[in-house]
Design a protein around this nucleic acid. Structure first.
Lengths: 256, 256
DNA sequence: TGGTCGATCACTGTATACAAAACGGGCGAG
DNA sequence: CTCGCCCGTTTTGTATACAGTGATCGACCA
């Protein structure tokens, strides 16, 4: 497995937090997996102390929750959470793009930034429709997110959006994204970036609502079959982390 | 110094987190104070390990920030942050009351709850105008917050609001609240509760915008230039806060 | 045979000891 | 006189050892 990020020089607790977060988001650590301290510290080659700090940050992120007596378990994620999550997300993102568009009126560099992003999104439409790998497109959307964060001028808002986006990435994995939808999404992103570059707050807000409503409705209709069969009250089977790599770990980015 | 909360049975890290958070919010730990691990662990009578966890949660809450080589320092708070904080707060609270009002349409118990709160807010108007202690009123507002949180039906939203409200309490300490303003605020809160009880989302949203805009403008105009002198029984000395800080780091905030 | 009680076990929570790294002060050279 | 470098001190980062607590499983009794 490739160490995708440059991990040298950072603290062990940061490495553990990053690794566990990616594994949870990727699904390698299935919801319900118990993150036992001794087990995970041994697996990651670190001690319990930095691992505990990493687990605490995971809990703060909402990716794990403490279970009485069993340590922390990976939180479940389902499409039922899409509605409340998008409800919040729409409010936050609309506010962010509105402020970015307003602030861009006195910031020529920001206008240039968003103009460039708009062009890059438009250039990404055709390849996506032809079935290109969406990872590059996702990186572009993260770049747009960062641009909005930096120009909205509201650290509190950026912080709230950070948490929302973490959960969003997990939700995205529950749905299959067709090339048509990805291309449409890129067009919508281009419209948002263009509206911000044009310093039109209302247009930017409307474009954002449009995009997010489309994303939500598509998320609902293109859901993947749930890997967990048990319908009764029990939320998730307490599968141990070491054995969780078996059944459902192989649904890796099959979106095409 | 009253131990206001029941601390038996909880973990040492929870106690430390709670204690430090209250001290920061109350101003006993002034902005810029260095929270050295050995010093604070000795003061609170615990070891460094649970204290570290408490500091980590403080950083996650935004009440402290890590400073390279100096440990974590209490974050500064000023009225300059009121604008972005309220910008986010308005978006979140408006969404919350809107959803609460919607959900109350199918929840008679919620309507009863908000009706009762509206009456209690109206009953609090007269005493506040006559200079009553606002602590009881603040407890009532927290009760309204909890009612909105529980009926909005959105855990993500509730979580974001939690962080906002922590910072809000710190901001509130920077401003003086006249009995007139407190009474007016109680009336506005009553209007919000009444609108939710009446299952009118738009009215509830408008009442919330009205209240928060009033609160923000009053916060700006009634700032405290020189806060309270140090408390007479104040045992917690600012420790190394003033020693390691340069002249420019000493902000206008002092212990409240 | 079913229920309940007890012991065992594993896990977390806490404390302390060790090591690395960064800041501040002091010294010397230019 | 100022700038740059070096070293001591203090701080955090990490590892490990210990204790308390809860759950699980087995045995015993009704």
């Amino acid at each position: 497995m490739p160490e995708c990020v440059y991990t040298a020089g950072m603290r062990a607790s940061d490495r553990a937090h990053l690794t566990l977060r990616e594994e949870i988001i990727a699904g390698d650590l299935a919801p319900g997996s118990v993150l036992a301290e001794v087990e995970q510290s041994a697996r990651l080659g670190i001690s319990r102390t930095p691992l505990r700090e990493a687990l605490g940050r995971l809990v703060a992120d909402g990716l794990a929750a403490p279970s009485a007596g069993r340590g922390v378990v990976v939180t479940a994620v389902s499409l039922d959470e899409a509605a409340p999550l998008f409800d919040l997300r729409i409010a936050l993102e609309v506010l962010a793009v509105r402020r970015s568009a307003e602030n861009a009126q006195h910031d020529p560099a920001a206008r240039e930034l968003f103009s460039g992003l708009a062009v890059r999104f438009e250039d990404a439409v055709a390849p996506l429709r032809e079935g290109a790998e969406p990872s590059e497109y996702y990186a572009l959307t993260e770049e747009l997110d960062r641009a909005i964060d930096s120009t909205s001028g509201n650290a509190y808002l950026t912080d709230s959006l950070r948490t929302v986006r973490i959960h969003l990435v997990r939700l995205r994995r529950l749905s299959r994204h067709s090339p048509e939808r990805l291309a449409e999404s890129a067009r919508e992103h281009a419209a948002i970036a263009r509206a911000v570059a044009g310093t039109n707050p209302e247009l930017a807000a409307a474009a954002t609502v449009l995009h997010l409503q489309h994303a939500l409705s598509h998320l609902r209709t293109a859901s993947l079959p749930a890997p967990d069969p048990p319908p009764p009250g029990g939320p998730a089977q307490p599968s141990t982390a070491s054995t969780a790599l078996g059944p459902e770990a192989r649904l890796k980015e099959t979106t095409a």
